[in-house]
């Protein structure tokens, strides 16, 4: 992978390095959660940075991180397609539908019971087990600290969808958390 000659502009490369490389760990983290595979994540991030550099001339900001993530997300979707086994997608509730929301199904916990703290590996496992597109929304919000607006831009969905996905994601994670807690008791 070598950038072609017309791209060979050291000043542009310097600006790109300064703007984009600080987000390398963030991008890699997102790719790990989206693809759930270390080698694939590495390839995806590399491809993402090359594409980002190519399009850096048209980058108008304001925030670099969501911009990179939008590119990375497209790369990852291409990877899903290559795998041909799409990630397990849970049916989303149609907007404005009148069915009972699934987040009501979460089990009640007795009051005052504290949630158990788990080690990093367990938490990673619980998050990674969330179904798409809830995992993506959750990781962008909780691990990457994007605003709803930014998540909407990255995932190319309305803000309302971000809100309902996030509510669903947190409800699913809460159930999984409580189940894990039950198991290790």
């Amino acid at each position: 992978m070598v950038v072609n000659a017309s791209q060979d502009d050291p000043e542009k490369a310097r600006r790109f390095r300064e703007a984009a490389l600080p987000y390398l760990d963030d991008a890699y983290t997102l790719a790990r959660y989206l693809l759930r595979d270390a080698a694939d994540a590495e390839d995806a991030v590399q491809e993402c940075y090359l594409r980002a550099y190519k399009h850096f001339d048209s980058y108008r900001g304001p925030a670099m991180k969501p911009w990179l993530f939008a590119i990375l997300r497209n790369v990852c979707r291409a990877e899903y397609a290559r795998r041909k086994t799409a990630p397990t997608v849970v049916e989303e509730l149609p907007e404005g539908g009148d069915q009972t929301p699934m987040w009501n199904e979460a089990p009640e916990t007795p009051e005052k019971q504290l949630l158990r703290r788990f080690d990093g590996d367990t938490v990673r496992k619980l998050v990674a087990a969330l179904a798409e597109p809830f995992r993506e929304t959750f990781v962008l919000r909780e691990i990457q600290n994007l605003s709803y607006r930014e998540i909407a831009d990255v995932a190319a969905v309305p803000v309302g969808t971000v809100m309902s996905r996030l509510a669903r994601a947190r409800a699913m994670l809460r159930s999984a958390w409580l189940a894990e807690q039950e198991q290790v008791k």
Partner: peptide
């Protein structure tokens, strides 16, 4: 509480050095 627990646990990944090197090498 869950959010706090996540914030305090190590849920992020660090990009491998080799990946950083590969990207650096591809840039002018």
């Amino acid at each position: 509480e869950i959010r706090q627990a996540i914030a305090e646990s190590d849920v992020r990944y660090k990009a491998p050095l080799e990946l950083r090197r590969k990207i650096e090498k591809a840039l002018p």
